[in-house]
Design a protein around this nucleic acid. Sequence first.
DNA 1: CCGTCGCTGGAATGTCGTTCCATGAACGAG
DNA 2: CTCGTTCATGGAACGACATTCCAGCGACGG
Lengths: 256, 256
Amino acid sequence: MTPQTRKKPERRTSPLSRERIVDAAIGLLDTAGESGLTFRSLSERLATGPGAIYWHVAGKSELLAAATDRVVTIALTEGTAGPPGGIHDVALGLFDAIEEHPWLAPQLTTQLSHNPTGPVTTRIFEATGRQVSALDAPASSWFTATSALMHYILGAAGQNAANLALARDLGPEADRSAYMDTVAGAWKQLSPEDYPFTRAVADQGLEHDDRVQFLAGIDLIVAGVTARPPAAQQLREGRARAAEAEPPASGRTSPR
Amino acid sequence: MTPQTRKKPERRTSPLSRERIVDAAIGLLDTAGESGLTFRSLSERLATGPGAIYWHVAGKSELLAAATDRVVTIALTEGTAGPPGGIHDVALGLFDAIEEHPWLAPQLTTQLSHNPTGPVTTRIFEATGRQVSALDAPASSWFTATSALMHYILGAAGQNAANLALARDLGPEADRSAYMDTVAGAWKQLSPEDYPFTRAVADQGLEHDDRVQFLAGIDLIVAGVTARPPAAQQLREGRARAAEAEPPASGRTSPR
DNA sequence: CCGTCGCTGGAATGTCGTTCCATGAACGAG
DNA sequence: CTCGTTCATGGAACGACATTCCAGCGACGG
């Protein structure tokens, strides 16, 4: 599968390399979107044929995985400078990476699902969890806290990137503020009977600064991690509630 | 586009209807996976040709949106029975729906991104937020809390569904417990220097009950929503921290 | 000087979403 | 009862895609 004899990388000067292919793929994804990455367009950009690419890359999914891995690794390693506010650094690093590469969010959820033990997933989990373990919280809550943070970061950052893309569609000079007002306006049109909450939120206005909004969510989860006294007890309560929430039907996987 | 004259639904007895098409699509997705839904396979199952389907449905994306909407609506309306533990009901309703329909998780993130004001997104936001507003928390934190919960629910439930699918690949009799042990085993193989946190989490063992694990995350976020005293102040701190976290480079969208 | 092997790129294959069109079934008008 | 119009059907055709195949290239070891 993989080219075995990569022993001396300087055998030639301008060959097609896996790195060059991944670079071109990232550029194509950034400029033309997810659907813009084609083996044809990639061939054209690299001035070669589709067949040549397959010598270095197994297929499209592996190419996407490699591109995702590259971008995530960069985003995670460059932001680890400042000593305080560790979680904010990791979160904003991913937030900015997803904003620059909107295709990243769907790709990351795909990686999470199809390959949970893969390098991308593990890297994000490790980077997030390391900041969690620096918090004042019992180790028994680490996994739960890291999961919550990771899913929020990925989901909210993806949402933000999507909002930006839609804001651009709204008009050339429209920024996120204008788009958020559009969303709030759409929410106010909803039926008061069926959507009281959404209308109430729209009435009080949506935060216009994306990073402030994003970090507010991070801080909210962090508050949940640190502020609660008995973490182990909480988990026991959760177990009891889960059992109680499933009274009669259907033998699922859980009722151990 | 849409068939206007749907006035009298009983004009004929066994016609191709949008409902029948969506039903068949859901069945196909459940049994054959995301890639199993094809207009050809759908035609075959409905004993017709591809062209006929396009009379009722605009295209594949609309078909997927309709299928997603159907499943989400059912999941959200049936679990709204019990009076207490409202968030758990909503969360478990979505959790179970995603577990039964593993294709739902990717579809939901797609809906969230491509159509944030669409019915699916709004429905989930409303259902989640209604339970948030019942909590003891200031209204200014509602949006943030609802976002955090929604992204966690979708992400964690999708992760769980993916784990189940991978556990089935592990062997016919393997359940989630066996798979979680496999993951923990893989994590223990990681480099102690690069992945100290992940190894530490693996050492203390992973919760085997999926619902308990899931609800622990819900409770953690809920604790963050309720337990912190000054929500408005927190947001102001977040704004200050955001400004401080971006000292030198690159004019982004936020630094207003 | 020649054969081999890593590597290339263009052609070919099969499947997909989508469009087109010839046909049929119901129904109101004459 | 008959005909034209409308709604609806389904099979065939089209273009784009990922992937595979294969005939060749160039450099290096013999």
